[in-house]
Nucleic acid binder design. Sequence first.
DNA 1: CATCGTTGGATTGTTGAACGATACTTCAAT
DNA 2: ATTGAAGTATCGTTCAACAATCCAACGATG
Lengths: 235, 235
Amino acid sequence: MTATDARADRSTGRTRLLPPMPTQAERVAELLRESLIDGVYPPGRRLSEERLCEELGVSRNTLREAFRLLVRERLLVHQMHRGVFVGLPTSDDVRDLFKARRTLELPALREATAPAEEAVRLVGAAVDEGEAAREREDWWRMGTANMRFHQAVAGLSESARLNEFMSQVLAETRLVFHVMDAPREFHAPYLDWNRRIHMLLASGDPRRAAEELATYLDTSEDQLVTAFTAMEERA
Amino acid sequence: MTATDARADRSTGRTRLLPPMPTQAERVAELLRESLIDGVYPPGRRLSEERLCEELGVSRNTLREAFRLLVRERLLVHQMHRGVFVGLPTSDDVRDLFKARRTLELPALREATAPAEEAVRLVGAAVDEGEAAREREDWWRMGTANMRFHQAVAGLSESARLNEFMSQVLAETRLVFHVMDAPREFHAPYLDWNRRIHMLLASGDPRRAAEELATYLDTSEDQLVTAFTAMEERA
DNA sequence: CATCGTTGGATTGTTGAACGATACTTCAAT
DNA sequence: ATTGAAGTATCGTTCAACAATCCAACGATG
């Protein structure tokens, strides 16, 4: 058993009185989720039950419980009698994901006329982290910071359910980036945009911040979709 | 020989109520989901593994897989070593659910400047169904029709992910209504409102339709939250 | 009488093995 | 090359067992 329990509490952010003692299946799901987001398993790859439960040191039943969770999050897809595969998003999925992101992020930002101080701080922290990563030329952490930025923007809504849905959408978006292995070009130009959006938000102009974010999402979607369709036709 | 036939004669030959679905666990989950939405199990009640897997004719492992699904949908809550319980929403949950509904429904309606014909038809069909149910004084179907109306409104976004999230939110909202057993008073006044919203939408004025829906949601949330806090204090 | 360990029973958590069902592979025959 | 028929690998599901934990009943102590 090599699973370290030094995992961040990113679900609610609140520190619980009692340390969360999740079940084995949830721990396995969390571990696999991290691995999928980090690109350990390439999109489309089949995950063998036998091999994985050997590798993780859990029984097949437990592993299958974890699989159900991740299938529901669309990180894995399940085919009857064939097994589970790492999600392989298409350009249609990209469009749908951006539709969801617009619905989640724009209202949250637009209606943040009196945002919680902590929420705004999280947005700024994500921007800082991204710029620091760019400095270090750590492109993967830069992508992570960008995702965290958008998670923080959606977090302005202060809704547990919307937040959870947003993190699912972003996790799936990571899969999209893994399909086209190119984090640098797709994240780097947007850091300055993030900075500007945060400044507009912090200076009490969420309306204009939302307008910036809208064009941001438009161009980002365009770039991704065109790159994606090109790749799809090549294959 | 279909898959369902093979399943039927494998075990005791007892008639199965399970609808045809990919895997057994998903079928069980679907059945339980329906039961939970229909209020077969009251909120807060513990669901015994032993009794349920006997009742449904499936093994404990399969039942537990289904439990995971429903826990993730927030219809069930899981307590370590204590079992799973039917979700018992609080007034905070009600507020959060309405926040989610505003985020999902209002943009979908507002931006339906050129909506798909089929999507608009679904909205109208839900209104008709609600009015027919009111005629028959079938209050539970009236509530169902009202939920279907809002599902159809969110469906104007034409996004698979947003739609799925919306149906989860609405399922949980059904739990809210079961906590305070009073479907009639809470749905009846809103039928005319639904009719008006659909007419505005069909007549090409989604902007005003969205405004109507906004006040609809405000008053509905107010009514529910006040009734809820009153009930919480009484208990 | 109230409070606090202790104990035993009940339920969940997890495992391992077993076997039917299905998809994939191999290979022979046309 | 195509078809079709074994054979194999893997998934789907069940079952039985045991450990871990909760809970209620009970009794001891003050």
